[in-house]
């Protein structure tokens, strides 16, 4: 066990061992995605597909854990794979250096047990929700803007994004507020805790509920949808 000792007894030994048999797809390897991949890898999720068609640029340095002076200009997805080889060589990271879209989405997502939304645009999130719906997969949504962030766990049939983005093409307030360092780490952490609970089938998840976080007012509001 060794490296997973400190997961005990948050997880049972059997639960921790079972994590190596799961396949998770993380869509987006930027702010949220970088932290999510780190945490999934350290938990010991056996197979992680990481999807991102971007390379790192200077404006990513304020918040994206995988970006640094050495990785500027490099593929975000491939950088994630390289890092995970060092962090946890027992897991496999499948790096996909392209953006998810309506054409490649089904092929890229099928075969996983769970999907994490670490995207930064609303339009692709709806494509992802549709794909997960068709494939019958749970989708853990997270998004950030300035001091704010939100998380929800979407099961097939829920279509929760339809409630969260009333106007599908809406630009988020992050266009005005940017994204500081703490927001992706915070939201990514909560998404990983949700993913873990879905996999081990224990604990309360944010299904048909949205956790809306305001770190400026330090308020944490759970809004339920009926």
């Amino acid at each position: 066990m060794g490296k997973y000792d400190r997961n005990m007894n948050t997880l049972s030994k059997e639960e921790n061992e079972s994590l190596k048999n799961f396949k998770i797809c993380v869509v987006g390897c930027g702010g949220i995605g970088g932290y999510v991949i780190e945490m999934l890898g350290r938990l010991g999720i056996g197979y992680i597909t990481v999807i991102d068609g971007d390379v790192f640029e200077e404006t990513n340095l304020n918040r994206q854990i995988l970006s640094n002076s050495q990785t500027i200009g490099k593929s975000k997805a491939q950088t994630a794979r390289e890092r995970m080889k060092l962090v946890n060589p027992d897991i496999y990271v499948n790096a996909v250096f392209s953006h998810l879209n309506g054409e490649n989405g089904m092929e890229l997502i099928k075969g996983h047990h769970l999907v994490i939304d670490a995207l930064d645009d609303v339009e692709t999130r709806f494509i992802l929700q549709d794909i997960c719906e068709k494939l019958g997969l749970p989708l853990i949504h997270g998004a950030i803007a300035g001091w704010y962030g939100q998380v929800t766990t979407i099961f097939p049939g829920d279509k929760t994004l339809d409630f969260l983005y009333k106007k599908r093409t809406t630009k988020g307030i992050e266009r005005k507020l940017g994204n500081p360092s703490f927001a992706p780490a915070l939201i990514g952490s909560i998404q990983v805790s949700e993913a873990l609970k879905v996999l081990i089938r224990r604990g309360e998840v944010l299904r048909k509920k949205i956790l809306y976080i305001d770190t400026f007012a330090q308020e944490y509001e759970i809004v339920e949808f009926f």
């Binding site: 987006g28 930027g30 702010g31 949220i32 995605g33 939304d117 670490a118 995207l119 930064d120 645009d121 609303v122 999130r125 997270g142 998004a143 950030i144 803007a145 704010y148 962030g149 939100q150 983005y165 106007k167 809406t170 630009k171 988020g172 307030i173 992050e174 994204n179 927001a183 992706p184 809306y212 809004v223």
Partner: peptide, 10 residues
């Protein structure tokens, strides 16, 4: 009534 602005970054 609850009103939220869109949060869409990642």
């Amino acid at each position: 009534v609850s009103l939220f602005p869109p949060v869409g970054g990642g």
